[in-house]
Design a protein around this nucleic acid. Sequence first.
DNA 1: GTCTGACGTGTGAACGCTAACATGAGCAGT
DNA 2: ACTGCTCATGTTAGCGTTCACACGTCAGAC
Lengths: 330, 330
Amino acid sequence: MADVAAAAGVSHQTVSRVLNNHPAVSAQTRRRVHEAIAGLGYRRNVVARALATGTSHIIGVIVSNTTLSGPSGALLAIEQAARTHDYWVAMVGLQSQEPSEMTDAISHFVDLGLDGIIVVTNTEAAKDAALAACGATPTVLVTSARTPPAYSTVDVDQAGGARTVMTLLRGLGHTRIAHVGGPDGDLHAAARLGAWREGLPADVDADALFATGDWSSGSGYRAAMEVLARPALPTAVFAANDRMAFGVLRALSERGLSVPGDVSVVGFDDIEGSECSIPPLTTIRQNHNALGRAAMDLLLEAMERKPARSHRVPAELIVRASTGAARRGT
Amino acid sequence: MADVAAAAGVSHQTVSRVLNNHPAVSAQTRRRVHEAIAGLGYRRNVVARALATGTSHIIGVIVSNTTLSGPSGALLAIEQAARTHDYWVAMVGLQSQEPSEMTDAISHFVDLGLDGIIVVTNTEAAKDAALAACGATPTVLVTSARTPPAYSTVDVDQAGGARTVMTLLRGLGHTRIAHVGGPDGDLHAAARLGAWREGLPADVDADALFATGDWSSGSGYRAAMEVLARPALPTAVFAANDRMAFGVLRALSERGLSVPGDVSVVGFDDIEGSECSIPPLTTIRQNHNALGRAAMDLLLEAMERKPARSHRVPAELIVRASTGAARRGT
DNA sequence: GTCTGACGTGTGAACGCTAACATGAGCAGT
DNA sequence: ACTGCTCATGTTAGCGTTCACACGTCAGAC
């Protein structure tokens, strides 16, 4: 910067003013400085600027379970939204459910002097660890967990999406609707499970229609096989995510049951490939881009010390060929 | 830091030495400083340290097309590998194929004073833009592109994987093997296409057995429908990725052709869900973790100014139910 | 003609750390 | 007793910005 100042015949402070678009610089000086910058190929040192201002224009994003399409889609959408606001993203993908890993990641981000942090998490424990560690750094959570009112949150309307599924299936005449749920402790799994149970007729034995998976397609296959081995066959299966729904489709296929003729199947997420399963899968689409934009907007508000608020992104039902009317008499 | 120094009754420099595990500090002083640090809850300012040392312990990762499972899997694996070496990751997901977007991202990373950059890209243009912008910052490319010898590269052995597929199919007696290729300009698509063409018997008309997609399952479906509409049916289809293979499976199912009875199908990537397609998909597994570890190792070497070298991660054939012997007489 | 204010610019310190050198104590060898 | 070495620690000067303030200059008002 000193070189630029010398080349333009001004002080380093004037160069700084030009760089920051400070109004009190004459047009002529401004031009001379710009020429000197271009001539010397000068680039401002971002680290020194961060040290002097205490602001880095970088936000941190922490995602809990990156092997899933949901969190990783959210990460990428957030990064995209951040960049449209001229923020850059540092990220950590947690490998375990250990709260300590979350704590370490957050406190490193705080040390780094990041302008803000967005935490994408699906468990209460991870959320609590994040809030305990984030201190005064503006933080937004992408989660379905309840949070103290001081923190903004964003999530896709999980329960609403799941209720839409149940409304669709009930409207098609289904009553014995099985559910392949996600893992215990996962808040999305819990929200989808809750909506399923509430959408079931009161006289149906929910426990007999329920099995649990770990989000993987293999676990969906096994869960479906387990349910199909029980006395009363379901007429529809609502899987808590598309991958498990793939496993359900395969299980039904192997058992010689047609979809949707014998059994209807619904998933959740609308991942790539759902439109080309056999048959194409009815599912709930999560709008990651809207989620990412909302998270970034709320973080910007938090950085301006505006009051926290929460935003819920609606889920969209995508009806494909895997759902049809319930068979009479079953 | 001055407070800690005062509390421990030493100079700030001694505190710095303790923090950096400098040997020339007596055990007693070291203990007193540690106590003072704990007592005051002191945390070192990472930005100031970066300014003083010129090193940030952060690496940048740029991924070209984050909507695909490959690049996003690579990103997450790299992040994981980086953290085991005590490096943190700043990331950018490019939204377009514009070289200028790559250039902007890289030059911002350079400005940021990152210790190194890893670029995950599948196109020549993006690779060239990256190399033009990275300057003196150590850079490793995750790509199949040819690069100047000054740069280390890592990739999964695309051609080798695709050759394995052809060997398998030929061994099962297939000769009319169709290929659903990836988009033009994509280097992975080109490598897989090349291996397919070379693995075909000389007297088979390759053009009649080829169609192109854009990696999406829908495009795989359309490409398969196009090939199936031609006079001579293939006995096997090799799709350039699993998602397009899903589309192929659906197309075959709708045309009433059984898999693998009438037609065998092979994909590439082994994405989640491939084990539960109908039928489960034979495919090539890409080891993202090995890729990420190798990329990080090479970057560490580059940061130490060691000579560049390249590493190729082997691809693994996963045989599932979608492949079987070719029908006699077809 | 002096005062006032706005405007453009320069000066010094500060941000919080580390690198390089300086200092001083302790000890062994001559 | 003096030299020379090692070891532990302190002192000073940066790293490259921005911030707070001081300083001129010029216009307009009285």
